[in-house]
Simulated scan of single mutants.
Amino acid sequence: MLRQATDEDVDTIRALRNQQANRDVSITTHEISAEEHAGWWAKTSVDPSRRVLIYERDGRTAGVVNFFDLDAGTGAWGFFLDADGLAETGETLPAWIEVMKEATGYAFDTLGLDELTGEVLEHNTVVRQMNRRFRFTEGEPELRYADGRELTVIPIKLSRADRRKPKETR
C-alpha cells in the first residue's frame, strides 16, 4: 500500500535512505545528516511538483517512493526499500515487485501521467533488469560526477501506452 508521507515519517525516510544498500545504488552515497534531511523535507513537503509516498507492507513501513518534476502529464520517480528489514524476512523480491506495481499504477492512474522517467546507475544490473520487466526503456548513458566519483547514469522512461496493465480483479 502507498500512502502520503507526513512529518511523522521524516526520521524513518532518512533512516531507510541511509541504509548502506540504498546508498550503494544512489548517485549521492554520503550519509544524509539530520540537518540536510530536514532541509530537503521542508522544501519537498510544500512543493506541488513532488509527492513523497510511504510504501507499507504488512502494516509496516517498507519503502519510500518519490515522484518529482510533475508537470503536464510527465514526471520522474525513484524509490528505495527497507533493504535491511526486508532481507531479514526474505521479502525483498516480493516487496520490490509490489512497490513497482503500485508506484507505476499511482503514476498513471492517480497522477494521470502519460510518461514516467527516472535514472539508474549502469552498474545496478538487477534494477535495470527489473525495469525492463516493467517495460521501462533505457536512454543514452551519461557520465556524472558525484561524491568524488565518476558514474554512468542511464535515463529510463515508461509511457502510459507501454505499461503493463494491472490484472483485473474478479
Rank of each mutant, 00 (worst) to 15 (best):
R3T: 10
Q4D: 13
Q4C: 04
A5I: 06
A5N: 03
T6H: 08
D7S: 14
D9H: 15
V10I: 08
V10W: 05
D11Y: 05
R14L: 09
Q20C: 02
A21T: 12
N22A: 13
D24F: 01
V25W: 04
S26A: 15
T29C: 10
H30R: 15
E31P: 02
E31H: 04
E31M: 10
A34W: 03
E35T: 15
E35M: 03
E36F: 00
H37Q: 15
H37V: 09
H37R: 11
W40S: 04
S45V: 07
P48V: 07
R51L: 06
R51G: 03
V52R: 01
L53E: 08
L53T: 07
Y55H: 14
R57A: 15
G59Q: 09
R60M: 03
A62Y: 04
A62I: 01
G63T: 02
V64H: 00
F68P: 02
L70G: 07
L70S: 01
G73S: 11
T74G: 12
T74S: 13
A76S: 15
G78A: 07
F79H: 12
L81M: 14
A83D: 10
D84C: 06
E88G: 05
E88C: 00
T89F: 00
P94R: 05
A95W: 01
W96G: 07
I97H: 12
V99A: 11
K101P: 00
Y106K: 04
D109R: 09
D109P: 06
L111H: 13
L113S: 07
E115Y: 00
E115N: 06
V120W: 01
V120N: 03
L121R: 02
E122L: 11
E122T: 04
H123T: 11
N124P: 00
V126H: 03
V127M: 10
V127N: 09
Q129H: 13
M130E: 03
R132Q: 15
R133M: 12
R133Q: 14
F134L: 08
R135I: 05
R135M: 05
F136Y: 15
T137A: 11
E138V: 06
G139M: 09
E140H: 05
P141S: 12
P141F: 12
E142I: 12
L143M: 13
L143R: 14
R144N: 10
D147T: 08
R149P: 01
R149D: 12
R149W: 01
R149Q: 14
E150N: 05
L151N: 05
L151E: 07
I156F: 00
K157L: 13
K157P: 00
L158R: 02
D162P: 04
R164K: 14
K165P: 00
K167P: 07
T169I: 08
R170Y: 04
